[in-house]
Computed example of a mutant assay.
Amino acid sequence: MGNILFVSGVSLTIGLKSTTQFFMKRSNFKGTISFGIGFFILIIGWPILGMIIEAYGFIVLFRCNGI
């Protein structure tokens, strides 16, 4: 539930087009895949492993890139 609300909140905050561009950007692809795989693992019933993989994806997506 929290994952769906997170993606919905990002979409409502910056817009659907910008959200899609953010998640599909080449530099964010590793984080996007990790977040998606973690969500899938949560759905199939492995919550601890899914949360760890999602946390990794979240960190990769929103890390500071030397700004």
Rank of each mutant, 00 (worst) to 15 (best):
F22G: 04
F58V: 14
F22V: 03
N65I: 04
Q21Y: 04
C64N: 10
I37D: 06
E54W: 10
F39C: 07
L5T: 04
G38C: 03
F6K: 13
M24R: 08
R26K: 09
S8V: 05
R63H: 09
P47E: 13
V60E: 15
N3I: 06
L12A: 13
T32H: 01
I59Q: 08
F58I: 15
I4N: 10
W46R: 12
T20K: 12
G57N: 10
F40A: 15
G36D: 00
S18F: 01
V7N: 12
G66D: 14
R26E: 05
M24E: 07
M24W: 04
S8E: 11
R26C: 00
S27K: 11
F35H: 08
F22T: 04
G31M: 01
R63W: 04
I67A: 09
V10D: 06
G9E: 05
M51C: 06
V10E: 08
G38Q: 10
S11C: 01
I52G: 06
N28W: 10
L12G: 01
C64W: 03
F29S: 02
V7C: 10
F58E: 10
G66S: 13
S27I: 02
M24V: 03
G36I: 00
M24C: 08
I48H: 03
I4E: 15
V10K: 12
L16F: 12
R26Q: 02
E54K: 07
N3Q: 14
L16H: 08
G2E: 11
F39E: 10
N28K: 14
G45E: 11
N65C: 04
W46L: 15
L16C: 02
I52H: 08
G15V: 04
Y56H: 05
A55V: 01
G15S: 08
G66E: 14
T20M: 12
G66Y: 10
I59P: 00
Q21R: 14
I4V: 11
I41N: 12
T20Q: 11
T20E: 07
I48P: 00
G57R: 07
R26D: 01
N28G: 05
G36N: 02
S18K: 15
I41M: 07
G57A: 10
N3F: 10
I67R: 14
T32R: 02
S27P: 00
T19L: 03
G45D: 12
K17P: 00
I33V: 15
G57I: 01
A55F: 05
E54A: 09
V10F: 07
T13I: 03
I48C: 00
S8W: 07
G57P: 03
S11R: 11
S11V: 05
G9A: 06
W46I: 08
L5W: 02
N3E: 15
N28M: 05
I43C: 07
L12E: 09
I48Q: 07
N28R: 15
I48T: 04
P47T: 14
N65D: 14
I59L: 12
M24L: 13
L12M: 05
T19W: 01
P47R: 15
G66I: 11
W46E: 13
I14W: 05
S11A: 11
G2C: 02
L12H: 02
M1L: 07
E54H: 04
C64L: 06
S18H: 09
M24N: 12
L49A: 15
V7L: 15
A55D: 01
M24I: 01
S8A: 15
P47Q: 14
R26P: 00
L61G: 03
K25N: 10
L49Y: 08
N28S: 05
A55C: 01
